[in-house]
Design a protein around this nucleic acid. Structure first.
Lengths: 196, 196
DNA sequence: GGAGCAAGACGAGACGTTGCGACTCGCGAG
DNA sequence: CTCGCGAGTCGCAACGTCTCGTCTTGCTCC
């Protein structure tokens, strides 16, 4: 069967598979994640995995989304009116996340998967990164209206100006990610974006 | 033997292995790179590879270094006195590199390997990225002396401000990398860095 | 100083192991 | 009675170890 009937799908098995996949990555790293291990841990036949997911990476992405992604509510950045303060809060939070070994492991695994498979790449960027980037763009647009950001500033690039440096340092491990660093990046971005 | 005698190592085999590894990645992508394929292509026994390299990734990194890395001469950025123009030239060149399918493939492969193996990560960042980042820092320091960049600007972060956004967009494929984009990033960075 | 020999790196490939992904079984729920 | 399920088997590909016989290298002994 190319198309099994989703109505008959076992929700229990689905969740067991996703949480098994997630736990295995956290415990042993993504390199050691195998379909057979997921099936064994979840108490599930391998075929049940192959029936519903096209690849190991897809299972993993869904697992991450199931844990982190209650993306129903449109997320938004804080908007106190002080753009600098708001950005510092957000960048510091991101730095903290990347410093959490669990999230670090997950993020590197996702990045690898995104690099390997363009399909998963779009999946990740759209469903995980996308909303966050969009929320940031919204906050910048608000600042633009308030006259804190130049009228003609390209907000897509502005977002990358905020997250790019942090991403860069995280990926390459060229230096530790500290709150001070987050503040410096925020400061630079503010200078680059401010009107006039 | 834990430590084979390097003096007796076959230089011919070494080069055959490296160029075989490089060619295979270019032709079929990193995912399909196998030790057996390298050995077959190079006309070499598998053991000869396992004797001298700890992993497939290490072979690959060496292969890249052998091709790109005549890093003897200390490389430097153009310094015409016009920081903005120089940065635009450099960022446009980088954008062009990432748009070359061959280099794109190689870079993604390296990134994957760096994410998987911290040892290879430092290898790559130090031997490949390092000199480039350092050259950029040098150029910015020169601009700092010329009063085009604020005295107290953190140049390590400044470098990331330049490359981070491009890296971010390249990795996530959120939008195409164009010359116009390179110019915008350079413009933002200039605004962020300039004195007063 | 040249002949002979042992060490060891080499090419080739067999071997057991692991994981993939397709497949086959009853079983049991809808 | 249909069809998704857990369980497990199968062939395949690649890994990393190993064992061959070959060839190169450097040392020894006459």
């Amino acid at each position: 069967m190319k198309t099994p009937n989703p109505a008959r799908r076992s929700e229990q098995s689905r969740q067991a598979i996703l949480s098994a996949a997630f736990d295995l990555v956290v415990e042993s790293g993504y390199a050691k994640l195998t379909v057979e291990a997921i099936a064994a841990r979840a108490g599930v036949g391998k075929q049940t995995i192959y029936r519903w997911w096209p690849s190991k990476g897809a299972v993993f992405v869904d697992a991450v989304l199931a844990v982190t992604g209650d993306e129903k509510g449109h997320l938004a950045l804080p908007d106190t009116g002080d753009l600098g303060a708001d950005l510092r809060v957000v960048l510091r939070a991101i730095v903290d996340e990347y410093n959490d070994p669990r999230l670090d492991t997950m993020s590197r695994a996702m990045t690898i998967e995104a690099l390997n498979d363009p399909g998963i790449n779009t999946e990740i960027t759209e469903r995980i990164m996308g909303p966050h980037l969009e929320a940031t763009r919204d906050r910048l647009r608000s600042a633009q209206r308030a006259g804190q950001v130049a009228e003609d500033a390209d907000l897509d690039v502005a977002v990358e100006l905020l997250y790019g440096p942090i991403y860069h340092r995280w990926m390459l491990r060229t230096a530790p990610l500290t709150h001070e660093y987050a503040d410096t990046v925020a400061e630079f971005a503010l200078r680059a974006l401010r009107a006039t």
